[in-house]
Simulated scan of single mutants.
Amino acid sequence: MGLTLTAILLGIVEGLTEFVPVSSTGHLILATELFGYDADEWAMFNVVIQLGAILAVVYQYWPTFWKAGIGVLRLERDGLLFARNILLAFVPSAILGLAFKDYIDIMLGSPMLVGWTLLIGGIAILGIEKLAKPDMEHTVSELPLRQVIGIGLAQCLAMVPGVSRSGATIMGALAMGVNRKTAAEFSFFLAVPTMIGATTLELIQKGEQLTAGQMTVGWGEIAIGFVVSFIVALAVIRAFVAYVSRHGFAPFAWYRIVVGLAAIAWLGLR
């Protein structure tokens, strides 16, 4: 399979899975294993194209970001609380991500780990959905510090590939009583600084090799994956909040369980 077709395929996978609780990183790892890509060659690509999905969040929720930004500049309460909550939730993963990056990179090379975390995560989602008792409707800026910090700590679980960043943050929020709609939107907003930070770190470490043309997968493939992930993620975001507000997360949990079991069985037989 050519580089361009591979970039399109991985861009679709990223866009479809970044914001639903099934783990985009886990799916990219399994896709690499299934189709025989060189994981090291596509590692940077897989991180950077996440910015395409993040741009979809900014585009979809532009009025919210604009209002919050103006509110911060004007020192308005809602804008300041929105920025505070997103940044505070981002801090735990930023600290632990920097501290344990080498260990995280090692785990990214384990597709069997992805199979198990998909399976266990699916079971966890079913349990949390059954036991969670959402409180009154809150917006992201209205969430108390206890819930904000708890969601930030839950996001740290996503450093293990297959856990799912959106899954960890959404389920963490639900477990602490946040309603489904706000939990999903908080996860979307929190993805912006998280993914920008991860991409920046990756570019600092490998950007010189990329610019010098020393990597098989270059800027052209990254640009293709970026655009494809943006388009696909935009469609997913628009449908996801409406769906889970009515139906919940159980279908995603069962999907994780089926894919996790299939991956464990397939990898075990190889």
Results as ranks from 00 to 15, higher is better:
M112N: 05
G109W: 00
V148P: 06
L145W: 10
M171L: 12
G97R: 08
A175K: 08
V91A: 09
A175F: 11
L143G: 02
I86S: 05
M195A: 06
M171W: 07
T32D: 05
P134T: 07
S23T: 00
I151A: 12
I170E: 11
K101R: 14
V163Y: 03
Y243V: 00
M107F: 14
I196S: 14
W219R: 12
D38F: 07
S245M: 10
P144I: 11
F35H: 06
I106P: 02
I170G: 08
L34W: 12
G150W: 03
A265V: 15
T6M: 01
D38Q: 03
V160I: 14
W42Q: 02
Y59N: 13
Q60L: 15
R146M: 10
V13E: 00
W116A: 13
R84A: 13
R74D: 14
L190Q: 10
R84T: 14
V91E: 01
L201I: 14
V217L: 03
V227E: 05
A175L: 13
V228G: 01
F65I: 15
G127T: 09
H138R: 12
L16S: 02
L34R: 05
T216I: 08
L75V: 11
I123Y: 07
L126G: 08
T4K: 06
G172K: 12
L96A: 08
P21I: 00
F252W: 03
M195C: 04
G71Y: 13
D78T: 13
V13L: 02
I95N: 10
T25P: 01
E202C: 06
